[in-house]
């Protein structure tokens, strides 16, 4: 198995190129510190649609089309479309794929979906099954709240550890060749569970998976925190990030001040009252396609480890008292 590396990592025979990236975000994200990095900021959570669910799928479809348009590609130039979201039966991705007409793999990795898509897309290209793939994931605050928590107009207080589901969708084109940041290797996460049951504290549920994937990545690929300018986790939030740092230190790895989190980058927590930070497939997807890709292109960052984390519970499993399993997938991207 030539390109498998260590226990759970892959190393591509030649780096794959992210030739295009695009994103669409909601009004709250447009008021955050990363506003200038987004392609389109919606002023209406409905995006001209009749429901939040249709708004989310439109966001996903439009961000995917925008990623193609930026480099003058048509859907028929793409071999496979890989996408996912948080809705039951991943309806946002499925319905967007209906509109795009590209051979499609639907993915579910909760908030880790974007990294999962990059990994799988890379494996498809490196395995010789595709030349060019389109990858996307989305989330919508109101459709997610409706599915996972209380009705939006319900007058309840949120827990201070709760994260805010980002409204946004990001898409990238991954190509065997071309210009752009390069993906050289990645690590497929194991599903871990350290017994957290509080769905309002998903960061804490996901931190052990993030720590495990990061350490496995270093071990499998012979890298260390020094190999990267930044380690960017997807959606751990304030509590999860602190838990991650402590878990890493407990296991003898000190990442210094290199750890960032998409959920903390996307909002101004104090001014926007976002509690523990952002979450959702759209959070890491928009921060990656907006902020991180730009910084990689401008060579401000040379090497990044992007680690998207997903909490794999459902409202049903939580009601039945189950603990929250989580997964984290990592991809190494260089500028």
């Amino acid at each position: 198995m030539g390109n498998k590396c260590g226990e759970q990592s892959v190393s591509f025979s030649q780096p794959l190129v992210i030739t295009s990236g695009a994103n669409i975000v909601g009004p709250d994200e447009g008021k955050g510190p990363l506003a200038s990095y987004f392609d389109l900021i919606l002023d209406d959570m409905l995006f001209g649609e009749k429901s939040w669910e249709t708004a989310e799928r439109k966001m996903l479809e439009e961000s995917a089309k925008l990623a193609l348009r930026k480099i003058n590609l048509q859907p028929q130039d793409i071999d496979f479309f890989l996408a996912g979201d948080l809705m039951n039966q991943i309806i946002s991705a499925n319905f967007a794929a209906r509109g795009l007409g590209i051979p499609f793999f639907g993915l579910f990795g909760a908030c880790s979906t974007f990294a999962e898509a990059i990994l799988l897309g890379g494996i498809l290209i490196d395995g010789g099954f595709a030349r060019r793939v389109l990858l996307s994931s989305s989330s919508h605050n109101l459709s997610a709240e409706k599915q996972f928590r209380f009705p939006v107009e319900q007058g309840v207080q949120r827990s201070p550890t709760a994260q805010w589901t980002t409204t946004g969708s990001g898409a990238v084109v991954l190509d065997a060749e071309g210009d752009g940041p390069r993906v050289s290797k990645g690590t497929v996460g194991k599903v871990l569970d350290l017994g957290v049951t509080d769905a309002n504290n998903m960061g804490a549920a996901m931190a052990p998976a993030a720590a495990d994937t990061i350490l496995s990545h270093f071990q499998d690929t012979g890298t260390s925190p020094e190999s990267y300018d930044l380690i960017v986790t997807g959606d751990l939030g304030k509590v999860g990030q602190e838990a991650l740092l402590q878990l890493l230190r407990q296991r003898g790895c000190d990442p210094g001040d290199k750890v960032r989190d998409c959920g903390l980058l996307i909002y101004d927590l104090a001014a926007q009252d976002m509690h523990a930070g952002g979450s959702g497939c759209g959070c890491s997807a928009t921060v990656f396609t907006g902020f991180l890709l730009k910084k990689l292109r401008e060579k401000e960052y040379q090497n990044l480890l992007f680690v998207a984390t997903g909490a794999l519970m459902s409202p049903l499993s939580c009601q039945q008292g189950e603990t929250i399993p989580a997964v984290a997938h990592a991809v190494a991207v260089s500028g």
């Binding site: 201070p160 550890t161 350290l194 017994g195 957290v196 504290n201 804490a204 052990p208 304030k238 509590v239 602190e242 838990a243 402590q246 878990l247 523990a276």
Partner: peptide, 17 residues
Amino acid sequence: NRQEEYRLLVESIKPKH
């Protein structure tokens, strides 16, 4: 034991009401 240890870690980080 690992779960209990982690629970205590999370409790120590969590912002309080």
